[in-house]
Write a protein that binds this DNA or RNA. Structure first.
Lengths: 343, 343
DNA sequence: GATTAGCACTCGACGACAATGAGTGCTAAC
DNA sequence: GTTAGCACTCATTGTCGTCGAGTGCTAATC
């Protein structure tokens, strides 16, 4: 569809624009050492590329800027990944080297590192709890009326909630209840725990425990609600958005930052069935607030099972090559670190 | 020090400026129904107030703006609190009505509500763990090599970390260890848990458990590090900063938002020994980044014991009366909600 | 036929300049 | 002590001309 020369010129324009954030003129392309054509020739080609929809002109007497379609072509056909640079790699690995004891820490750390190294905003989606199963249940009474209910999943995820103890239930009854739950529910997927509670545990409880209705309702409150799209969301470098010249307008940046605070929206936006690295450019994003941003996401997986997503949000004029290379490395390293939890 | 008329005029200027964000001229003050003087008289008084340091002039032919000293005088002597309006109160209470099962939820919710109702940024510091004591310790093995260690404090706070199990330690040994820990450490302040571990638990372990050195080192990793200044920090409405006309400059707002992301700094900034409501205006704040912001904080307490702080960050031109009234109510309500955990 | 030099043209950015008007300080009258 | 009147200041706004980067087109060149 495009001639070699057109591809070369498009590539040069995108590269230039990514670096400078200024519309690219024919002269500056012509001056590049690897281009042997005069400005006039470049102009003709640029005119053609604009007609084909790969370039845009902010106004008549300005240079050209890549269009969404132009970026798309660049990402799909022209980009030279070249892998993450070794210095970057070691820098990144050293950040990641500290021993991390909590999974949340790993995700937050990954988000921070990515934001730091790219100067864009990064988003990390934690593993969804939907596939986990229950490993252990525990009640820790704090006083006569309240207790903490703790649920540990097969993946080492710990949830805790505060509950009111039903009056008149003895400590031994509570212990029995916990034992029954662990015996009956261990290994059951979190999704089905609540239904199992009523279908099977109820009968069992009624046999051994007084006031079993109240105990059952207490347990209902004690167990976490599993939402299909519930991801924990970690942000890194949200304010990096402010350093991009295209977002020097406060109102524009506000709509973006507001979007970043809506974790459910982010969660939906990033979660994807498709594995590997995915690039969404400008209006390819569904949310109007980021129609002049691009989002690059990578899923991370352990044992072939996709656990979550990390992504970078930046202007459409983002350094795709660098970000893609980095995300590739980071997602692998994250998976490696997380594999501890998912053996 | 100030005449009644000067106080009245200062009050009018501060009120006006808080509403309009524009320098206040003598004419607009004179027009107010409760002021019976001509612009010329007001001008003379304004000139005096400026000489005394309560007002400032952005440039010769502009109106006056309150200085830090002016705001300070306003807050200390002129402000009319009038309590939170009933409609606001019910609105706020209805937000807060949902049953909340996690303490983190309460703090985050409080921060969100405050930000929403004020259009400023709010910061909530969670209860410090320094005063808590250990309630319950638990090890949940996930597989042969790893386990989740869970610590519940007397206040229902749950911490969990991932640890590697030392090879060669049997399940029964782990169980014994957990039992010993609970027997010996329950009720001990979290601060002293680690030292107790070595001074007392070590001997005990060596009597009942094989490989007790490895087990001890594992426990050391399993117990959370208690930092004196460790607060959990919850932010609400960070982007509200962007709606304030004084922060339409992107660079200025970036330094503020960056500060908001440094949780340790925030924690230090807000934590205060002084109980009740505290107002820090402009340069009274130590951090240069917020030298044209004001911070209003309120501590919340249960049974006379201060648990944490909630605060509002806004421009020096903030609606002090409204914010102080609101913080007063919110801090009380939060304390009431949290009292469940601290009986 | 492809490439390029030459040139007129477009249009945003920038600085100079005047007009506007909100607000002041001072003086003299009330 | 208060106020009307007035000259003065200065940020803001709008207009205008200049500048220059960049284009599109035409004709000459390879």
């Amino acid at each position: 569809m495009l001639t070699d020369r057109q591809r070369m010129i498009l590539n040069a324009i995108v590269d230039d624009y990514i670096r400078s954030a200024e519309p690219v003129g024919s002269r500056s392309i012509s001056k590049r050492s690897d281009v042997g054509f005069s400005p006039a020739t470049i102009r003709n080609e640029m005119s053609d590329l604009e007609e084909l929809g790969f370039l845009e002109q902010p106004h008549t007497s300005a240079g050209r800027v890549p269009s969404i379609k132009g970026y798309r072509y660049y990402v799909d056909h022209l980009i030279q990944l070249g892998g993450a640079s070794p210095t970057e790699m070691t820098k990144f690995r050293s950040y990641f080297a500290e021993r991390m004891t909590e999974r949340e820490q790993i995700l937050q750390q990954a988000a921070n590192i990515l934001a730091n190294m790219t100067n864009y905003t990064s988003i990390a989606l934690g593993p969804e709890s939907i596939n986990h199963s229950l490993k252990h249940f525990q009640l820790v009474p704090l006083n006569a009326e309240t207790a903490v209910a703790i649920v540990v999943t097969s993946t080492g995820h710990v949830e805790n909630r505060m509950i009111s103890l039903p009056p008149g239930v003895s400590v031994t009854d509570l212990e029995k209840t916990v034992n029954i739950l662990n015996a009956k529910l261990a290994g059951i997927p979190m999704m089905r725990v609540t239904s199992k509670l009523y279908s099977e545990i109820g009968d069992e409880l009624s046999r051994y425990v007084d006031h079993y209705e109240q105990v059952l309702s207490m347990l209902d409150h004690a167990l976490p609600v599993v939402d299909e799209h519930e991801h924990r969301v970690f942000l890194g470098g949200a304010t990096n958005m402010l350093t991009q010249p295209e977002f020097k307008d406060v109102d524009k940046v506000k709509t973006i930052l507001d979007l970043l605070e809506e974790t459910p929206t982010l969660s939906k936006m990033l979660s994807s069935t498709q594995s590997g690295i995915q690039v969404r450019i400008g209006t390819e994003n569904k949310h109007a607030a980021i129609n002049d941003c691009s989002v690059i996401t990578a899923t991370y997986a352990v044992n072939g099972q996709s656990l979550g997503t990390i992504g970078i949000l930046g202007p459409t004029r983002m350094d795709y090559a660098k970000v893609i290379g980095l995300l590739d490395v980071v997602s692998r390293d994250m998976a490696a670190l997380l594999s501890r939890w998912y053996v």
